[in-house]
């Protein structure tokens, strides 16, 4: 296989289809027909890095685990290229040995996972009495006292919050006070020739909306020039007096 062929072929395979860096390494090793007990570190490191680079060019999200492996391989490659000084009494540690161990272990478990998948395939078609299905319904899964795990408690809590209790609904009436309504009320309240305090208009313990409505109405009346107001100092009582224009305009 030429370099170019390898390139185009590997490009088509997405990183998503691998279960991590070890899986990708095993794929590269099998693709290049490399003996797992005699891994040419430099070659494998190059191939791996090339793959990761292509993936990043394709804007694929590369999980940090892949980058850690890339760094490890690069380190191993540079070590294999440098001349080694061996001191007496120092063990000659093969940098490839640990990687090999990881690869063999991972490959074993990957094979077992495949076997488990075949069992799953078979056993999913088999129904027993009483069977696993008791658990599918969820709540029938009774737990003996003292056997509940943290997960069971969390599940129980979750199921509680899922069961939305019916909140008794309450209709809240919003009393709408229009400005024109307020004006007609004020017409009776503010009699000509008398000074009326704002507090007496809104009454005792007024709702906030009532205060606002009447205050806006008051501003509207001032704009029209129907009333004139007087306030001695900030936050003090507002005294309202009717002007002659009220009767003329309305």
């Amino acid at each position: 296989m030429t370099e170019q062929q390898v390139y185009t072929r590997s490009c088509r395979i997405e990183l998503d289809s691998f279960e991590g860096p070890l899986d990708l390494l095993l794929y590269l090793i099998r693709r290049d027909e490399i003996d797992i007990y005699d891994i040419p570190v430099a070659h494998v490191a190059d191939q791996y890095l090339k793959y990761i680079r292509e993936a990043s060019e394709l804007d694929l999200d590369i999980a940090s685990e892949y980058l850690v492996m890339a760094a490890t391989l690069t380190k191993m490659k540079s070590k294999s290229l440098l001349p080694t000084h061996r001191f007496d009494g120092e063990d000659d540690v093969d940098p490839g040995a640990e990687l090999r161990r990881q690869l063999i272990l991972y490959r074993t478990f990957r094979d077992i996972a495949e076997e488990l998948q075949r069992s799953e395939e078979t056993w999913t078609e088999i129904y027993t009495s009483p069977g696993e299905r008791d658990r599918w319904s969820g709540d029938s899964n009774e737990i003996e006292p003292g056997q509940a795990s943290l997960l069971d408690l969390l599940k129980a809590l979750n199921s509680l919050s899922e069961e939305e209790p019916e909140i008794p609904s309450q209709r809240i009436q919003r009393t709408l006070l229009t400005i024109s309504e307020c004006i007609s009320t004020l017409e009776k309240e503010i009699v000509p020739g008398r000074t009326i305090p704002f507090r007496s208009i809104i009454g005792p313990k007024p709702a906030r909306s009532r205060i606002v409505s009447y205050f806006i109405t008051l501003l509207e009346l001032i704009r029209r020039g129907w009333v004139c107001c007087h306030q001695a100092y900030p936050f003090s009582e507002i005294e309202i007096q009717r002007t002659e224009r009220w009767s003329v305009d309305s």
Partner: peptide
């Protein structure tokens, strides 16, 4: 336990 034959997985 008593189990059904895998042949009837689809029906069950």
């Amino acid at each position: 336990r008593i189990a059904t034959d895998s042949e009837f997985g689809g029906v069950v």
